[in-house]
Write a protein that binds this DNA or RNA. Structure first.
Length: 423
RNA sequence: GGUGAGAUGGGUGAGUGGCUUAAACCAGCAGUUUGCUAAACUGCCGUACGGGAUUACCGUACCGGGGGUUCGAAUCCCCCUCUCACCGCCA
């Protein structure tokens, strides 16, 4: 969430930046600033009232010791009156602050200066393309048919065991998953990311910390009996490692990577958008998370983009990098780059990674701070990116690399799979 | 699932109603002394919000969370959460 300080000191800036996200914040910002003003007024009055109560209570102690019963009784009456007043003030103040808190979380993060204006996916800017789109013959198959023919992914069996969107990987299909996970983790750790294996269920506090709760509650699977949530991404447990933490200068840079299965309930789409591996309820993903000082976060972002690009290149997949426009960005992001690979048989681009700088928006919610050179406590910046999400990588690998009924495994992946081709 | 014990600052840990403005020790920071390393000594050493000359300083809140008793609560009462130990079950 945004800080009250920013809203108070620079409301026009907030409103103009949020316009890039097609968010009209004028009215909301004005309301929040009024509530903030009230909050300070209530606090001043309440503090004064409580201070008097404390003083008088201490005085009663002294009176009792000195045997001045009458003075003590008089003071008790005064405290009773003050107590009544402070209760009223507290109630008013609580009501005011509750409204303030409920409104401030409605403001999205400010997009940074490089974010292009735009309404939706069609306004995203392609900043780079790489690798050649393969020419497939007329008999090229989409990945779901290849997977069935080669018997490496069984969607129907997943339906039997669980439901739609929970595929079963078999034989070389299963081995391919494991190979990709290991390859990604190896590349990440070689680049200095600390490998972490977090829990795949988190408590409510963690869900709040990264912003999935309360508004996106429906997106996560919930274990009601214990009130735990299945993670929609490793970002949730890994970033929450630093919830309520104050870092010192030597702790930077913080670079972590984690593999987890990811669980998403999200319904809503239909047809070829959700066919095969295009959208699943459970999938595997390797994530990178960084925590940086504000002055370093954009350099870190560039570094992460280059890093992800390196992985895609090792897989020899045709890709493009998009800078998302204001209208297509997530609520919490300050800037996001999407990586898409070309799925040749489907004839469409598939998102396989999303790399974002959240600046201090997540950190403010997480209470993730650091001590700067002057010893002052400041909010840190958080960043994360997929490196990579597996299903669509697999979809593109199967489709693009099909040749004479076989799937050719890219060179860099072979030490991990132990085979050169499938079929 | 059963039984018991707990939750206090960065850590250990004292604290059964006012002398706590949370002791002491450890860690950390600064300084003094000093051939080096080290040691000794002195001082500083939580967070949030508010006020303020935006250094200093002052006020309020916070001892797992919430509520209550009381003039006054870390301390007493109630509810909740979590942790640990042992037993049971178990990869």
């Amino acid at each position: 969430m945004l800080t009250l300080k920013l809203l108070r000191e620079n409301p026009e800036f907030v409103i103009s930046r949020l316009a890039v996200k097609n968010f009209d914040a004028a009215e909301l910002v004005e309301k929040i600033n009024l509530l903030d003003k009230n909050r300070r007024a209530f606090q001043a009055e309440l503090d004064e009232c409580l201070a008097q109560q404390k003083q008088k209570a201490a005085a009663i102690g002294s009176f009792m010791k000195e045997g001045k019963k009458e003075e003590a009784e008089e003071a008790k009456k005064e405290v009773a009156a003050l107590k009544e007043k402070s209760k009223e003030l507290e109630a008013k103040s609580d009501e005011n602050n509750a409204e303030l808190n409920s409104l401030i979380v409605l403001l999205p993060n400010l997009p940074c200066a490089q974010v292009p204006e735009g309404k939706g996916a069609e306004d995203n800017v392609v900043v780079k393309m790489g690798n050649k789109i393969p020419e497939l013959g007329p008999d090229a198959l989409p990945h779901w048919e290849l997977a069935k023919k080669l018997d490496i992914i069984d969607f129907d069996l997943g339906v039997k065991l669980t439901g739609a969107g929970f595929p079963v990987y078999k034989g070389k299909g299963a081995r391919l998953q494991r190979a990709l996970i290991n390859m990604f983790l190896d590349i990440n750790t070689a680049a200095g990311y600390l490998e972490v294996e977090p829990p795949v269920m988190v408590n409510e506090a963690s869900g709040f910390g990264t912003g999935q709760l309360p508004d996106k509650e429906g997106q996560m699977y919930h274990a009601n009996l214990d009130n735990y949530y299945l993670v929609p991404t490793a970002e949730v447990p890994v970033t929450n490692i630093y919830r309520d933490v104050i870092l010192t200068g030597d702790d930077f840079p913080v670079k972590m990577t984690a593999y987890t299965p990811c669980f998403r309930r999200e319904a809503g789409s239909y047809g070829k958008d959700v066919r095969g591996l295009n959208r699943l309820h459970q999938f595997d993903k390797v994530e990178i998370v960084r925590i940086e000082k504000p002055e370093n976060s954009y350099a870190a972002l560039d570094d992460m983009i280059a890093h992800v690009e390196g992985i895609v290149n090792k897989l020899e997949l045709p890709y493009r990098i998009l800078r998302l426009c204001g209208g297509d960005m997530s609520f919490t992001s300050a800037i996001t780059y999407d990586f898409e690979v070309y799925s040749a048989a489907q004839g469409r681009w598939l998102e396989i990674s999303s790399v974002s700088n959240f600046e201090s928006y997540q950190a403010n919610r997480l209470k993730l701070r650091y001590r700067d050179a002057e010893g002052k406590i400041q909010l840190a910046h958080t960043l994360n990116g997929s490196s990579l999400a597996l299903p669509r990588v697999v979809a593109a690998l199967l489709e693009n690399n099909q040749k004479d009924g076989k799937i050719i495994i890219p060179e860099a992946l072979r030490p991990y799979t132990g085979f050169d081709c499938i079929g």
